[in-house]
Design a protein around this nucleic acid. Structure first.
Length: 327
DNA sequence: TTTTCTGT
């Protein structure tokens, strides 16, 4: 009962490579020769191994250690355990992966020690959590090293300084305005990735983040998973490589792309999914967001993750605005 | 409105 078995009408999914859908236009397709071929095995009727159910996951993940994570935030009561019920609410539809899970009060993160950037972050948004709040002041927030990450694997402010890249939020600050504590927790460097500032973090990517917040006007519950991608690219010698810049003394990886996979839950519990991949580069303001919509399974293959694995297929009504049909 | 950086 997983959405992965859901096929698009006409089965277009099977033959589309990332090179085609990332760019979204012929001109872009010629320019950017990123490509990730879908595997030869396109038989979606073969059951895909599912992640463990939440009960198994929660026992295996250091949720109880999360007190230590937030000890540097002044107004957190470290004597009070974080709410596991909030974590189970955020992660209602399953964990995309289980590597180095960190739970904060209002989002959950999986950390990639090798790249010093998260694998993914997961958020649950409602109209309430994203609405404007005079009591919350973003300008009081500071980018803070995440002390819960071993110093070998931790990114620090100095890594980003003078790099030319923004410290771009994965879990967006603007999604966590229900309390000062929540927004402050999005400023840990474990939640940052090097992003092109002008034209990307401050523009197109921000536009996508605002789009996600706006979905809370349509759906009572919005679930969003965000993360980096390091996509292969054909070089001049005709061979394919994964190449990405690293910055600072800690060699923080600069992702080639970022993804968002979003599920909106309607009043009647029907689910609608949108999935986006955007290149970490300046994007013109007149490029519509739908250009960056992609089949969610291609993000899964590229990222090594499984999204929303616990979604019941009879509840998933559409993907990227297309009605789904069942196998 | 929200996303940040640089230089003082």
């Amino acid at each position: 009962m997983i959405w992965r078995r859901v096929l698009f009408r006409g089965g277009v999914l099977a033959s589309v490579g990332i090179g085609g859908w990332i760019a979204g236009s012929v001109a872009e397709r010629r320019k950017g020769n990123y490509e990730v071929k879908l595997s030869q095995n396109n038989d979606f009727s073969i059951p895909v191994p599912a992640l463990p159910i939440f009960g198994t996951v929660s026992a295996a993940t250091p949720i109880e250690n999360s007190n230590a994570l937030v000890s540097s935030v002044s107004d957190v009561d470290v004597t009070k355990p974080l709410s596991t019920s909030r974590v189970s609410q955020i992660m209602k539809f399953g964990f995309p992966g289980l590597d180095n899970i960190r739970s904060f009060d209002d989002y959950v993160l999986s950390y990639d020690r090798r790249n010093r950037v998260a694998h993914w972050v997961f958020e649950h948004l409602t109209a309430e959590t994203v609405k404007h709040n005079d009591a919350v002041d973003r300008s009081k927030c500071q980018f803070t090293e995440d002390q819960s990450i071993h110093p070998y694997f931790r990114s620090v402010n100095k890594d980003y300084k003078g790099s030319g890249f923004d410290r771009g939020h994965l879990a967006a600050a603007g999604n966590h305005k229900s309390s000062q504590k929540h927004i402050e927790q999005t400023f840990f460097l474990s939640n940052m990735a090097p992003q092109v500032g002008e034209g990307f973090n401050r523009h197109a990517w921000n536009r996508l983040e605002r789009h996600v917040r706006k979905l809370t006007k349509v759906y009572p519950n919005v679930y969003v998973c965000t993360g980096p991608l390091y996509l292969p690219r054909k070089e001049a010698d005709g061979k394919t490589y994964i190449k990405y810049q690293v910055i600072g003394a800690n060699s923080v990886a600069v992702p080639t792309h970022f993804f968002k996979v979003i599920v909106g839950e309607r009043e009647d519990k029907a689910l609608e999914m949108e999935a986006y991949v955007m290149p970490n580069q300046a994007i013109s303001d007149d490029t519509p967001l739908h250009v960056y919509q992609v089949p969610p399974d291609s993000i899964e293959r590229a990222a090594g993750l499984l999204f929303f694995d616990r979604i019941s297929r009879d509840k998933l009504r559409s993907i990227n605005g297309r009605k789904t049909t069942y196998v």
